[in-house]
Amino acid sequence: MSVENTPATAAPAKARVRRLPPEFNILVVLIGMALMFEALGWIFEGQSFLFNILRLRIMILQVSVIGIIAIGVTQVIITSGIDLSSGSIVGATAMVAASLAQSSDYTHAIYPHLTNLPAIVPMIAGIIVGGLGGMINGGLIAWTGIPPFIATLGTYVSIRGFAKWYTRGNPVSFLTPQFDYIGSGIVPVFIFLICAAIFHVVLGYTRYGKFTYAIGANRQAARVSGINIKRHLLLVYTIAGLLSGLAGIVTAARAQSGQSGMGVGYELQAIAAAVIGGTSLTGGAGRIWGTVFGTLILGVVTSGFTFLNINDYLQEMVLGGIIVGAVIVDQFRQARRAKV
């Protein structure tokens, strides 16, 4: 078909300006912070902050678990939702996975007949538990229409309850070396980065990703475009649950035990990582690399403060400021861009 006889519509075709990806700003902040601690290190401690492999390793290890969760949380926030249950899911999966990873050397195993199993069994079990938790979230949100905040606040409480009930509060220890390997060395970092790479591609280059952004950007528009919103939300929350499950497995393996209190507060750190990384709480915007950088910023700040021997409580106070500051800066940037 061709339409003739009419002038072309409005807006002179603007010369296409190649904009730097928004993650670039966050990367700049990350580098800036690292350099700041480097300078402070030389001034106050007389040594380098960055050129210390051990410190860098610990730093990344510490935030890998948060990062894995944040990858799922980013997707949830892009749909203009929120997930408060991820920390509790970490606790529940840590317990279940650990209970199936016990070594036969231990006489008081939870399941005496199920010891010395190959590590894949507790992994699958943990991931299933995480997926189920996410599925409950997604199901509640999609089919009852209650706000994600309320739905996941409920599961936050209940799933933590499950984690405690599972062994009546007792820790699960004496895990097989094969399982512990998941948490050893820099394996958690690999898991984190592999997940990030996978979901970077999934969000940017698949229909799943496009639907996720569309639902967050304008739910009604997504609906009239024929997207099955309920099904997709179920999927997004389930994936977030799966990733939290994976984080739970890593946490148990790192600690070589399962404890029902594992992951307390992780949900907020993961949300912070996503938000610092440029994910908009109003939905429709955010990218995985941003979240990765956001996670690393959290890591740099925490380990930088420890390095400078700053009081733990003071660290928390400053960290809160950084989270809010990141969002303020981001908003200014967006407002400026909207004007141009």
Binding site: K210, A214, A217, Q220, S225, G226
Partner: peptide, 17 residues
């Protein structure tokens, strides 16, 4: 009924990419 943060092309071909 458009998704403002997404591109023109993404808006048009959503679900039919």
């Amino acid at each position: 009924n458009l998704m403002a943060p997404m591109t023109v092309a993404e808006n048009i071909w959503i679900r039919r990419e």
